[in-house]
């Protein structure tokens, strides 16, 4: 390939992308989420999903769960870049530990009557989704599970009158007795 005239060496990388779930423990202080998000946008990293909430109110610790994709080198960079931010305590690659549970919650609104309505309810039951709101022509289902399961449920609801979806994004935790 001929290089275009440039002051920079333009390299094509062909490493395959991987998806990783990172758990990031941060000091809950103003601007901390902006720092994390700014890092991702500033350095061109991807965010597939991001969940954040204070988990230890006494010590003001928040836990951010980020699902990201990139080559192995980029994933390693992301972890290092996160780790060197001043308010970040710890970064754990939940995917790398291979011992983590990931869950997501979705609320799915479906509108329909007759056969469609019965079918939606039956599928919801099969997926262990709960009905948290109902009218004579609609349901709101609450479903918890990993991302694939939720995607599958939503796909099934689509022909049955899917109206809208609200998802929390992924939260993850390690198996076994040990903490982060």
């Amino acid at each position: 390939m001929n290089q275009p005239a440039s002051a920079y060496f333009i390299e094509e990388r062909h490493d395959p992308n991987e998806t990783h779930t990172l758990a990031v423990l941060v000091q809950n202080e103003p601007g901390v989420l902006a720092r994390v998000i700014g890092l991702f946008s500033g350095r061109g990293y991807n965010i597939e999903s991001l969940t954040v909430s204070e988990t230890e109110s006494q010590t003001h610790l928040s836990r951010i769960t980020i699902v990201t994709t990139g080559t192995p080198m980029v994933i390693q960079q992301i972890k290092h870049q996160l780790d060197r931010m001043i308010p970040v305590y710890q970064v754990v690659d939940m995917t790398q530990t291979k011992r983590s549970i990931e869950r997501e919650l979705a609320m799915v609104k479906v509108r329909g009557q007759g056969e469609h309505r019965v079918e939606a309810l039956r599928l919801a039951d099969a997926f262990r989704a709960r009905v948290i709101d109902a009218t004579t022509e609609s349901f709101v289902f609450e479903i918890t599970g990993n991302t694939d399961k939720i995607n599958q449920f939503i796909d099934l609801m689509r022909p049955l009158g899917l109206v809208e979806v609200s998802r929390t994004g992924v939260a993850a935790i390690g198996r076994g007795p040990e903490g982060m």
């Binding site: 390693q76 960079q77 290092h80």
Partner: peptide
């Protein structure tokens, strides 16, 4: 001293 400098450009 900065772990993010490791393997950033060159392995």
């Amino acid at each position: 001293i900065d772990p993010s400098s490791i393997n950033k450009n060159i392995r």
